[in-house]
Structure formats: C-alpha cells, structure tokens
C-alpha cells in the first residue's frame, strides 16, 4: 500500500466532505463540480493505492489493516457515487463522506506490515475478506438509509416541516435504498462467512469456532437475517426496522474493529505475526 497515494486520497476526500455541505444545507439535488471532482480524484488515488498493493502482492490487498480499511473506503465511495446518480440526494454525502474520511485516515495512520504467515495466502481467504468488506459496505448503506428514513419520518410525524423535510428524500427512496443495500450486504456477508469457515477449517487447528470475531460476526449475521425476514414478510417496516439496521451496523463496527483486538486468530489488527 502506497502511503503517499493514500494521504492524497485522504486530502481529496476531505475537500469533498466539506464541499458537500453547502449543497446539502441548501437542499440542492446536485453536488458542486468541486465536490464531485475532489471525490473522483480521491477515489482514483484510493484505487491507485490499492492497485499498487495488488501488483506487489499479486492478489487483492484485503488482508492487512491498511488495505482492508482503504478497500472499505473505496467501496463505500463507489457506492456513494452509484446511490447519488440513482437518487440525487446530496445529503447522502453528508452522512457517508465523514465515514470514508475516517476510514481512510485510520488506514493511512496504520502502516502496512509484511505478511509473514503463509497460511494467509489462500484463495479462500481473499474471497472471504473481500466478500466481508463488500458486505459491510452494503450494510453501511443500509445504516445510512435508516438514518435518513428516521430523520424524514420524524419531520413528517411532528407535522412541523423544518430543515430536513425539504432536504431529505422521501421515505420511499430511503426504503428502496435500504432494501437493496440490505439484500446485497446480507448475501455478501453470507458468502464471506461460508468461505471463511472453509478456509479456517483448512488453515487453523483447534477451536477456531470460538474465536471472538467469528462469534461476533455470526451474531451480526443473525441480526441482519432477522431484519431481512421481518422486513420482507412485512412484519416490521418503517421506524422499527430502521432502528434495528442502526443497531446492526453498530454490531458490524464492533465486529470489524473492536473484536479484532480480542481475537487471537483474527489478529490482523494489532499484529499479524502473532497468529502462528
């Protein structure tokens, strides 16, 4: 991972994050060209950093902290572009870009470590890691859609349309974004968990099933499974499912970042050499 590229990407993400604010505050449906070009440049540099790491490693760079986070940031930015072109909601930028900025910042602050373990080089692992990160990207969008839903729903219920009434999308748009990203996220998460199990059963000895990160991931997966089934059966919609999506994403963050510090097998966060 090339730190210079990542720092430049960070700078452009920062510019985009600030330049989204005027459009969002005034409720414009389009972003300024400054915000869009900064975001495009940030994405390109982020992609270039990933590409260089991939060339060096000869595979998708998703297995150390820096690359995993910057791959996450890259996906989220890409998802923002897609959602923005589809729904024209500038407020998506206000909710998404600070997250992208934070992820890239953490990535840039954590220097990449050389891979010492040969077990980490399996093809299953690449599929596992990238599927997990794609899944988290989808679930992050679900979270954002849920936040937008709750804000707009609050305005509508209060009957005093204020700031957000004119600036946020209709409940229907938030719902659609919610449904699509949830299905995408859950499918990726499932693929990620399955491939992870296959890989772990080959590479690790002992009771890897009790690894805190694996348990936390299963718990998260379970939350989303319930969410998905209640939502599509029509039992929970609206406010309730929005709250659960927010809870679910908190679980994702705890799993992705927090539990890594407790896990021995998934120790790629504190150090990778501790594994064997």
């Amino acid at each position: 991972m090339h730190p210079v590229f990542l720092w430049c990407a960070l700078a452009f993400y920062g510019v985009a994050m600030v330049w989204v604010l005027p459009s969002a505050a005034r409720g414009r449906p389009t972003l300024t060209s400054i915000a869009l070009s900064a975001l495009t440049l940030g994405l390109a540099l982020n992609g270039a950093a990933l590409m260089m790491a991939a060339l060096r490693l000869h595979r998708l760079p998703v297995i150390d902290v820096q690359s995993a986070l910057s791959f996450f940031a890259f996906n989220v930015t890409l998802a923002f572009f897609l959602a923005y072109h589809r729904y024209h909601v500038t407020w998506l930028g206000v909710l998404i870009l600070p997250f992208v900025f934070a992820m890239t910042l953490i990535a840039a602050l954590n220097p990449s470590r050389p891979l010492v373990s040969t077990t980490l080089r399996g093809g299953w692992l690449i599929v596992h890691s990238s599927a997990m990160i794609l899944g988290y990207t989808g679930l992050f969008l679900t979270f954002v859609a849920a936040v937008m839903y709750l804000m707009q729903e609050g305005e509508l219920k209060s009957k005093h349309p204020r700031f957000f009434y004119n600036r946020l999308p209709s409940l229907e748009v938030s719902d659609r974004l919610y449904d699509r990203s949830l299905v995408f996220g859950l499918i990726c998460l499932s693929v990620g968990i399955l491939t992870g199990c296959v890989w772990a059963s080959r590479a690790w000895q002992g009771t890897w099933e009790l690894d805190p990160k694996i348990l936390a991931t299963l718990f998260t997966w379970f939350i989303y499974l319930i969410l998905c089934s209640t939502r599509f059966s029509g039992a929970w919609r609206g406010r309730r499912s929005a709250y659960v999506a927010i809870l679910g994403f908190v679980a994702v963050m705890v799993t992705f970042l927090g539990v890594s510090f407790l896990s021995s097998q998934h120790g790629f966060f504190p150090t990778i050499s501790r594994m064997h």
Binding site: Q152, L156, Y165, P169, S170, L171, E172, V173, R176
Partner: peptide, 9 residues
Amino acid sequence: ELARKIFGS
C-alpha cells in the same frame, strides 16, 4: 407534496 415525501412517486 406530503404524499410525495412519503411515497415518492
């Protein structure tokens, strides 16, 4: 307008 804010189209 309110209907649009709820249902979109």
